[in-house]
Design a protein around this nucleic acid. Sequence first.
RNA 1: GCCCGGGUGGCGAAAUCGGUAGACGCGUUGGAUUUAAAAUCCAAUGGACUAAUCAUCCGUGCCGGUUCAAGUCCGGCUCCGGGCACCA
Length: 803
Amino acid sequence: MGYEFKNIEEKWEKVWEENKTYKTDAYDFSKPKFYILDMFPYPSAVGLHVGHVEGYTATDALSRMKRAQGFNVLHPIGYDAFGLPAEQFAIKNNKNPSIYTDQNIDNFRTQLKRLGFSYDWDREIKTTDPDYYKWTQYIFLKMYDKGLAYEDYRLVNWCPALGTVLANEEVIDGKSERGGFPVERRPMKQWVLKITAYGDKLLEGLPTINWPASTLTMQKNWIGRSEGTVCVFDVKNSDKKVEVFTTRADTLFGCTYVVLAPEHPLVKELTTPECQAAVDEYQKEVASKSDLERTDGSKEKTGVFIGSYAINPINGKEVKIYIGDYVLATYGSGAVMAVPTHDQRDYEFAVKHNIDMLQVIEGDCSKSAYEGDGKHINSDFANGMNNQEAKKAITEKLIELGKGRYQVNFKLRDWLFSRQRYWGEPIPVVHMDDGTTKPVPYSQLPLELPELDDYKPTGDGQPPLSKATQWLNTTLDGQHGLRETNTMPQWAGSSWYYARYIDPHNKEAIGDKKLLDHWLPVDVYVGGAEHAVLHLLYARFWHKFLHDEGIFSSSEPFQKLFHQGLILGSDGQKMSKSLGNTVSPDDVIAEFGADALRFYEMFKGPVDQSMPWSNDGPRAAKTFLDRVYRLYADENYRQLWSEEDNKDLDFVYNATIKKCTEDFEILHFNTGLAQIMVLVNELYKAKSLPKKMLLGLAQLLAPVVPHLAEELYNLLGFEGLIDFVAWPSVNEAALDAKPVVYAIQVNGKLKGTIEFKKDASEEELEDLKKQALALDRVVATLEGHEVKKIIVVKNKIVSIVMK
RNA sequence: GCCCGGGUGGCGAAAUCGGUAGACGCGUUGGAUUUAAAAUCCAAUGGACUAAUCAUCCGUGCCGGUUCAAGUCCGGCUCCGGGCACCA
């Protein structure tokens, strides 16, 4: 018979709720602070996923341990509630998406409470709340004031048949996901945030934060800072100039053609009449391709000659100008100098179009480009130099000729910030009749989303808000104007939400400065690795901006970051409705209880690793928890309870405290819980059960299975809650008392073990060597051989090397 | 294609400043208890060879290297997963 999880869990959840057990007094600066945060969920209609449960349990367990360790813990939750599904609900039902959003949030909240998460529910936020997005708009205006928000033409996925702009996700192989209509890329005036202005700061901050190395590397590569040279090519019979950016100025003498992005503004002017038809056709073809397709190196490099010639500034040589889709308008200057001998993409393009090649670095370029370092040839004054020397010499020469300059370039592109959607924060600017653009005054924030009669797109590319006639027309400083009808992307609200939890009801500011200074940065942040660049980079950008504005004193938002892995279906596939392999946390809770679900998800493996769901897992967790419960509730075991110590258990008990304390801190719950199982197995064999250890065991379990831990605490005869009882401490002497086990190897193969004093001295280790050589299996193996040397690694191993 | 991870028993995994590979759990098998079953408790469990829980050999995706010693480090592959800027 197992414990009655339903009664027990609901009983304690009620106690926590009624007492507001986990309410945080943010102004209590007497204890050290600890801010633990999950990436907040998008409240979808399907409700909480077992994947959410994993990350949320990990942070909840850490929060609970930190409270017991005497920290003032901030552990809030909220909802990232703008998004596509709500908009589609609105279009379908002709109802405001807030209805759909609020229903889903109610459902999420019920589910979260039933899992026993120790959130401070008075701090709950949602990004769609005008009291929240007032400050999202405020930050946008601050950026606008600083010139970091600007309008520009950018390519969007335009579907003429649907009359709407589509998200990348809604486009599959150049066709719309709904209906399969052709999609083309067409330029549209958009708001853009100048994240590139923070390129260096975003890069410099990386070494100061405690994040997974892989994520730091991905951000570094995404920012993609490179130092290079801009070379200016004159155009033959024209006063136009083509600027190219290159990191390989050393190869300039080998340049045999120039390629512009098909969207490059000069294409129109430089295309000759005889090439016009081919260029038009090519541009049309490229319009249907995504950047991803265009930069896929496995695809054939396509392009066409546009009829004009550029003049290589270093040697005056005339070279053909092509357009090619492997050159992106958004990177560098949207044009490249092509050196087929020393760049693989150029090599492939040149082979296909039968363009000359000229080798300028010694190395083999007969089958493919030689991209390595080497001695320069065919390069006039740069002959004999290596890459670095030649780069410098050639760039200096270009500068002298007025045909070049050094330049730092980022792969990072400015952040496209407009969406042609309804369900997002309105961008608070007005386009005045006189052609100027004015920001909405701060005093008029929040600029609320108006209700619409119809949420469908207009069909001509105008966002749905352009239908809100009354809202649209406004006056500012006595002048008439039209409001901006684009809305912000979902990323906006999630770029600063972590700061709002600190002072969520503040009407005057993002938060009380004193509180923001105290609580930021977030100490531990947990969320999926799929956010490694976008969300985590945007949030860092906004944080650094607000730091520069004097609003935040810290320079990074998230000090320590953990990723949680995906939970796959039991078939090893990603969980999806269509595969029928989804698992609902509600079903698992109904059958085994919230604690069993929490325990299973923490025990099944490392939090950061993706792994399949096991249907046996939660049941096994419940079996173990029953086994624990019996020690506290079953008369047979209660009779063994003792006020006295039990020396036999000292080592394993203290080892368990140590392991759990260390492992929980770094979210390695699986190994900590495994050690708790070892302790429980020992308790089952023991002749007496010290009550002190039973209390300690309940405390160690409390972070992961809080409901059961409260119950065990009461079964031990204590009144009240276990949550704030001081975390158990390790008796190191009990750990040191035990001898260590040395492995004895001959030529790396294990021949036996010897128990020996821990941290023995050099003389004592001589004795160990003798004992090792005397082992039967060692003697047998060594027979007829000579011992060459003996290596002793303290507390670990004796390695005998024989000839 | 580019950037970043990962591959260990029948299964989830543990062990990475190089030091006893498989802790802990699932599953399986055997035993105790029971009229019986469930539940519970105890024990065994990588593979080959074996009467054997002796010994020996093999074994951490594949090929090669460094070392007294390699799951761990190095070189070259391969397969799987995440991201690629309008999904969040």
